[in-house]
């Protein structure tokens, strides 16, 4: 029984590690400036974890294979050589070095996203999430967003942001159902929610942030690849949660200028 356990465990370990290493299932390709560092961080963690995983599982497999009790077995038991001491040292060294490596050296991505202010020339876009759609608002030429009046939000008349038309700051605001940004230009998103706890999940940009009502949460990143990406809600928000999505379109600078002019004319 112990031998069988050793074999099965070895097979499970091998297959698990092989699938990870084959990268058959892996992150979608990075399309933002900070994303590469994050993937690097993942690989580093993975190497550390894989070493621990393989050693622990194989040790277990070997022990189960080797130390099964036979009929009439009078072999004396053996205490682990060195007792507790070396195991303690191993745990502290292995986990300790991981902690130092990951926590204090590897948190650049987190710091880059959340501890540093966005570049001053960032394109600001306001995002408003509601059951079950995202809407986006560009400030227009004046660079100012008008206030959101929750009582004025009306899907029927397409006033998704509750804009007061008489407000001068709101006049030139451009509301869209799709997020478009120029490539290689820093973007700052101001995340708002009108009802539930929603999530803003942009896989290829390595961006994710919850959106809470009563708070405006800023995040910033720089897209580096032209293309169309999926924005998913990743915080349970109700029955249509699975269907709540939007698109991010990263365009060349000229395409973006054309697009924004066209959107402005639709308001």
């Amino acid at each position: 029984m112990g031998k069988a356990f050793g074999v099965v465990l070895t097979i499970i370990t091998t297959i698990s590690v092989a699938i990870f290493v084959s990268r058959h299932w892996w992150f979608p390709e990075v399309a933002s400036a900070h994303g590469g560092a994050m993937d690097h961080q993942f690989v580093e963690t993975f190497v550390g974890a894989a070493i621990g995983f393989i050693l622990a599982q194989l040790a277990l497999a070997v022990f189960a294979w080797k130390y099964g009790e036979q009929k009439g077995d009078n072999r004396p038991i053996r205490i682990f050589p060195g007792g507790v001491k070396w195991l303690l040292v191993l745990a502290f060294v292995y986990v300790g070095s991981e902690i130092i490596l990951l926590e204090f050296v590897g948190q650049k991505v987190w710091a880059a996203m959340y501890f540093t202010p966005p570049a001053t020339d960032s394109l600001q876009v306001q995002v408003l999430a509601g059951q079950f759609a995202f809407y986006f608002r560009y400030p227009g030429p004046d660079g100012k967003f008008g206030p959101i009046h929750a009582d004025k939000i009306d899907e029927a008349s397409a006033n998704f942001f509750g804009i007061d038309p008489s407000d001068p700051a709101s006049k030139d605001d451009i509301v869209t159902a799709e997020l478009a940004v120029p490539v290689n230009k820093p973007v700052e998103l101001l995340l708002n929610s009108k009802d539930m706890d929603h999530g803003f999940y942009l896989r290829e940009m390595r961006v994710q942030q919850d959106m809470l009502p009563g708070m405006q949460i800023p995040i910033h990143f720089t897209p580096t690849k032209i293309g169309k990406y999926d924005i998913a809600c990743n915080q349970l928000c109700g029955l249509g949660h699975y269907n709540m999505r939007a698109f991010l379109e990263v365009m060349s600078e000229e395409d973006y200028q054309k697009w924004i002019v066209q959107q402005a004319s639709l308001q």
Partner: peptide, 26 residues
């Protein structure tokens, strides 16, 4: 959160050390 993995790792290693050299009854 990372520090709590230290005692968890120690306990796991001690279990392995307990199994080591025993007369295992499966």
């Amino acid at each position: 959160t990372l520090i709590i993995t230290i005692p968890a790792t120690i306990v796991s290693l001690l279990w392995l050390g307990t199994v080591y050299g025993g007369r295992l009854r499966f």
